[in-house]
C-alpha cells in the first residue's frame, strides 16, 4: 500500500502541476475515518493505520462509508482521554503498513499515562502496542519489593481492601435498611 498519506497533520501538500507518475500509481484512493475521545477532538485516520486496531478494523470493514459519511459519523470513544487517543492515533500512523519493531521506546514513562494507554489499547485491541505497553509495565515492576509495587501502583493491601469492602457492605446495608425503612414508611 502506498504511504504518501501520513495521517492528519503531516500530509505533504500535493502540487497540482503536471501529474508525476508516482501520483497516478495508487489505484484505489486511501479511505479515511474519524475518531474522537472524551475531549471530542476529532482525528482523521487512514484505514491503513486503523488496521492495527482489531476493534475499529472490525467496525469499518463492512461499512463502505463515503468520505462525507465518514466525516459526519466519527467513532466516539468516550472512555478514552483525548491525549491518550492522540498517542494511539500517532502510533497507528507511524506504524501504518510497516512491520512493528521488537522494541518501542517512545511509550510514556509516567505510570498514569501508561496505564490509561494500556486500557485504551486493550479496548481498541491493538495487539502489538499492548505488548509494548505491558513490557514497559513489566520493566517498571522489575526489581521492586511488594511494598514498593503497592505504593507506586496504588494497590491497597489486603487489610485495606477488606476494610473498604466492610465499609461498602455497611453502607449498602444502611442504604438497604433506609430503603426498607422508606418502604415501610410508604406502606404506612
Amino acid at each position: 500500500m502506498s504511504s504518501t498519506e501520513q495521517g492528519t497533520s503531516s500530509a505533504a501538500p500535493a502540487e497540482p502541476t503536471t501529474a508525476p507518475e508516482s501520483a497516478a500509481a495508487p489505484e484505489v484512493p486511501e479511505s479515511f475515518y474519524y475518531v474522537h475521545g472524551k475531549d471530542k477532538v476529532v482525528h482523521k485516520v487512514s484505514a491503513g493505520a486503523l488496521q492495527h486496531s482489531a476493534l475499529i478494523h472490525g467496525m469499518i470493514s463492512n461499512l463502505g462509508y463515503t468520505e462525507e459519511q465518514a466525516k459526519a459519523n466519527p467513532f466516539p470513544f468516550e472512555n478514552i482521554d483525548g491525549d491518550i487517543l492522540q498517542m494511539v492515533v500517532d502510533w497507528c500512523n507511524q506504524h501504518k503498513g510497516k512491520p512493528t519493531p521488537p522494541e518501542d521506546t517512545n511509550l510514556p514513562k509516567q505510570k498514569e499515562k501508561l496505564f490509561d494507554l494500556v486500557l485504551a489499547v486493550n479496548y481498541l485491541e491493538i495487539k502489538e502496542l499492548l505488548t509494548y505497553c505491558c513490557k514497559q509495565v513489566a520493566m517498571m515492576v522489575k526489581g521492586k519489593s511488594p511494598e514498593e509495587i503497592r505504593e507506586i501502583w496504588m494497590i491497597p493491601t489486603d487489610a485495606e481492601d477488606e476494610a473498604a469492602e466492610k465499609e461498602a457492605k455497611k453502607r449498602a446495608g444502611k442504604e438497604a435498611a433506609g430503603e426498607t425503612a422508606a418502604a415501610a414508611g410508604d406502606a404506612k
Binding site: L119, T131, K135, V137
Partner: peptide, 22 residues
C-alpha cells in the same frame, strides 16, 4: 489514574508473561 489491580485479565496476563519470574 488507573491502578495496576484494576487492569483487565488479558492485560495482567500479558504483563506476567513479559515479566521475569522473580
Amino acid at each position: 489514574m488507573s491502578s495496576l489491580s484494576e487492569m483487565p485479565e488479558l492485560v495482567l496476563e500479558n504483563i506476567i508473561r513479559l515479566s521475569d519470574f522473580r
